[in-house]
Amino acid sequence: MVLKPTRIVRSAAVALAAAASLTLTLPGNAFAIDHVECRGGENFLKIWSHSGGRDSVDCYANKGRIGFGGWWVDRISTGNNDLIYYDANGDSVRISRWTDITFPNRPPKVDSIEIL
């Protein structure tokens, strides 16, 4: 009877190790987009926006999707990122890397952004 608890513990440890190795080796979507500090010389996604009388400049790095809160976007510099923004009208717009675009007349109201 002493061996039975040891066998259960050993089986659990083997199952845990197998699950961990599969997690590390199988490809999957990593949604790790990060809001980062804007720094000169970096190739981050950079977005100039405004809402409710406030202006903001935000930078993002890494693949993934994040809410943007319905802010009006004045300018986007994609850096080395391909981007899709999802606007309040339900449209999605793809912008290629190394693009700097401004919206002087009709800025989009953006609900979320996705770095590809």
Rank of each mutant, 00 (worst) to 15 (best):
D91G: 06
S96W: 10
T25S: 11
G67T: 06
G41F: 04
G28A: 01
P107A: 00
A15I: 08
E114A: 03
L45G: 02
L83P: 02
F103T: 04
R75W: 10
S92V: 02
T25A: 12
I76W: 02
W48T: 07
T78F: 08
R54M: 14
G52C: 05
I113L: 07
D82T: 07
G67W: 08
S77C: 15
K109G: 04
D74T: 02
I84Y: 13
V36Y: 05
S92M: 10
P5H: 06
W72A: 07
A13G: 12
G90K: 00
F103Y: 02
G69F: 10
W71D: 01
I8A: 10
H50E: 13
I113P: 01
C38L: 07
L16R: 09
I115A: 06
N105T: 13
Y60D: 01
P27K: 03
R39Q: 11
N62R: 05
I115H: 04
Y85R: 03
V73Q: 01
R97C: 12
I115T: 06
R65A: 06
E42W: 09
N43D: 11
V73D: 00
N62W: 11
G41Q: 05
G70R: 03
F44G: 01
N89M: 14
C38D: 05
G70H: 01
L3A: 12
Y85E: 02
R10A: 15
A15L: 09
I66Y: 10
C38T: 05
E37Q: 13
E37T: 13
